[in-house]
């Protein structure tokens, strides 16, 4: 089943990897030689090969986050030579191949660095802050069984397409890692934009943007200063336009909130 591709020349590189035993211990760079690599290997497969060697010697392998290895689960991270998800636009680290590097390169590999993403070990950081933001408002409230027929709510194609552009976010955190302020605006605005563009998302549109932004601030993410490094680093190329859209939503929702008449309705009954 397995055969080697013979068409391309193998390469050797030096990895300069961030090693940190745990959150509270200091980290440092350690160099590893990765030799005779097939250029068709993915970057993560290259790390597998290095780890195989380390494990065979009884050494602690380099811890890195990964799962689907096809660019959709958002688990992989890594800052490669200073860039989140490596040198190419629009792909995740797992979709980066060794053919992107030259024989003899020194490749610096670091974790995503941001205060709300504490490092757990080596190249793995904790991104549960993203889940907390979703839990604050990144949803449409529908109990199972209470939905109307799907075609009862037509959604114009252009709106649906734009919503899908935003909905593609894989929650990897590269936007935060790329931002000098560690801002999560692109991530939050992608969800606010996705749901706010759909008719189904209107009932909770105001509370969603207000609650998600409040949670984002509370968790220590920085502010957006419009440099758009987030969009450039995004493996799904989500546009910074969604940040502008969210800002408009936020302002409108804040005004409506301030002047909202309060209902006297109570939920009691006979």
């Amino acid at each position: 089943m397995v055969a080697h591709l013979t068409s391309a020349k193998n390469l050797s590189v030096t990895l300069r990897v961030w090693r940190q035993p745990s959150t509270d211990e200091p980290g440092r760079f350690v160099d590893y030689a990765a030799k005779d690599l097939n250029p068709n290997m993915s970057f993560l497969e290259m790390l597998d090969v290095v780890n195989y060697g380390l494990e065979a010697k009884g050494e602690d392998p380099i811890a890195f986050a990964h799962d689907c290895r096809e660019g959709i689960c958002g688990t992989c991270s890594l800052v490669i030579n200073g860039k989140p998800h490596g040198p190419h636009k629009g792909v995740a680290t797992c979709q980066t191949y060794m053919r992107s590097f030259a024989d003899g390169d020194v490749i610096v590999v670091e974790p995503f660095r941001a205060k709300p993403f504490p490092i757990l070990k080596d190249l793995i950081c904790n991104r549960s802050a993203f889940d907390a933001i979703q839990q604050a408002g990144g949803f449409i409230t529908v109990r199972a069984g209470s939905a109307c027929d799907a075609n009862a709510i037509p959604v114009p194609k252009d709106g649906a397409d734009l919503a899908m552009d935003a909905a593609q976010c894989i929650g990897c955190g590269a936007c935060v890692a790329a931002c000098k302020n560690a801002s999560a605006m692109l991530f939050v605005s992608a969800k606010v934009g996705h749901l706010g563009l759909l008719p189904q998302g209107q009932a909770e549109r105001d509370s969603r943007v207000l609650n998600m932004v409040a949670k984002m601030d509370e968790l220590g993410f920085g502010n957006c200063t419009n440099q758009y490094e987030c969009s450039a680093a995004c493996p799904k190329l989500i546009s910074q336009d969604f940040i502008a859209r969210m800002n408009r939503d936020y302002i409108a929702a804040s005004f409506r909130q301030a002047f909202k008449p309060k209902s006297n309705a109570s939920s009691g009954g006979a």
């Binding site: 069984g145 799907a150 649906a160």
Partner: peptide
Amino acid sequence: DQCAALGVPF
């Protein structure tokens, strides 16, 4: 129906 209501952008 459920997924369209949840905002899945089909």
